[in-house]
Amino acid sequence: MSEMHSEIWWERALDGELSAEEQRLWDEHLATCEPCRQEWAALAQVDWMLRMTPAPALPVGFEQRTLVRVHQSHRQRRTLTMLAGGVGLLLLVMLAGYMLATTFLTVEQTLGFVVAEWNILLVTLVRPLVSLLVAARVLIPLLLLAAGVSLLVLIPNGALATLAYLWVSRRYVAVTAG
């Protein structure tokens, strides 16, 4: 009888896993054990209530809103992935170009070219990025990205220009002193 008070027995009874003989013993036990009978009745009631409760009503327009939101997120993620890839590729190209340039030119000449021809860099960077964004039909990120890229190009360019100027000045002083 003690096993009929065990959790395992009650689990099996609730899940309908008792054998015919076990079920007979269980019914006899419930007929004589008041606490078990009361608890079993409560469990059975809750079990019935949970099984009989229908699915909650869907909010009006839920399906439409969900589709729209999921697709929007999916497209934005795809666009950002393409942009990240594009930016990465362009940076690689720039780095390769810089390394190639320094092979054939001096550092001063390379820096001088970068400072003087900043508009070429801007076009090289921004045009493909803008094309990608227009193709993906995403406007707000386009505006943010255009601002970001302009900043990216101009600030380093300004920094590069300053560094180049300082470096060239010091070299000039060193050469003329010597």
Binding site: E7, W10, E11, L14, Q38, E39, A42, L43, Q45, V46, D47, M49
Partner: peptide, 17 residues
């Protein structure tokens, strides 16, 4: 899962009573 489910049902039954 079985153990926790049973205890959850038991708790709900007590609450219902």
């Amino acid at each position: 899962v079985k153990s926790r489910l049973f205890r959850a049902r038991r708790l709900m039954a007590q609450q219902w009573v």
